[in-house]
Write a protein that binds this DNA or RNA. Structure first.
Lengths: 182, 182
DNA sequence: AAGCCATCTTGTCAATGGCAAGTTAGAGTG
DNA sequence: CACTCTAACTTGCCATTGACAAGATGGCTT
């Protein structure tokens, strides 16, 4: 009704993804409904199916977008290992909806080619970041670094951390990561 | 707790919780359906509501049970800090369904008294485990330790770790934790 | 101008969560 | 033993959802 374009939305695919991010950022992934997204975009309830097939298809697109955003954030973080870790946490906090989908493979098709490509890219950025810093046991160091930033991000998002940690996730993350790589 | 008398079913509350764990261990939390649980237990579709109110009520009971199991696992791990961390990962892998619900507060009522009590108990076991080991900066050390084991467990469960890590999560976790507390 | 076809709509169905009202089995009480 | 009381469970219902099928629309190519 309100949209200027009568029949063709113009950029429905993007509108649906944006709406999905908005909903999930507020109410979590469980609250996501294709019909609700369609209503928000001002289209019929079956319109999303044409772009994504089904719900898993939409979340697959969201996951792929998320891994690309993550790779971008890691690249922008520069060469310092601690900065890279802080950027990982910053991405999780700033793109909460993407992050929560990305690591819940039961919600989407993790073997999707686009997803695999983007995830591989992000993974390599993480591993090379670690390898640049430490000489010994790159595998263990990379795994430890990934674990500590991923764990901190997850705990922060789930609200499990005590208030004593403070209001700034990235500052707290920096302290924690520095504990691993002094 | 409130052990119900055997009636038509016998111990429906427990049967439903067990079925929920079984379903989620196979297909994840998104696949959970109250009606399916009722069918598995051989009762009508409205029977679960009497014991748990609604779906969030069932997951609240599951989360409380999970935090109790976690506290128990940490207590059994003994005094060593690394052993405690390995036990945390072991709990996550062995009680995957519980673990996945516990840290997804949008799925249940995190302010439930039983949940709060059990979570506090488990949290104290974690913190004292760390404090026993390190003298300086107990807050940072505790946060780093929790982050690294939680992150490793989460990444393992999501299937995000490369096969190179090996088939035994607890062995790999021990190596990673030892990297943080040499 | 004509037709193709991606885009979007209307219509329908089974499954789900949740509510309301009724039924039953056994415990408690006299 | 008869009676009541109530927790445990049932049947019935409704709105919502995801998915599918078939039709309508309009931009784009030729």
């Amino acid at each position: 009704m309100s949209q200027s374009r009568a029949y063709h939305h113009g950029d429905l695919r993007r509108a649906l993804l944006d709406a999905a991010v908005e909903v999930m950022a507020e109410s979590g992934p469980a609250a996501l409904s294709l019909r609700d997204l369609a209503r928000r975009a001002g289209v019929s309830h079956a319109a999303p199916a044409h772009h994504f097939g089904d719900k898993a298809g939409l979340l697959t697109a969201l996951a792929a977008q998320g891994f690309e955003l993550l790779a971008e954030a890691l690249r922008d973080a520069g060469d310092d290992l601690v900065d890279t870790g802080v950027a990982y946490v910053g991405f999780a906090v700033r793109h909460r909806a993407h992050f929560e989908v990305m690591f819940r493979p039961d919600l989407y098709r993790a073997d999707d080619p686009e997803v695999v490509a983007a995830r591989t890219r992000a993974g390599e950025l993480l591993r090379t970041g670690v390898a640049r810093r430490t000489g010994r046991g790159p595998d263990v160091d990379a795994l430890a670094a990934w674990s500590i930033v991923h764990g901190f991000a997850t705990l922060w998002l789930s609200g499990a951390l005590p208030p004593r940690v403070g209001p700034d996730p990235e500052a707290a993350a920096r302290t924690v990561i520095s504990r691993l790589f002094p």
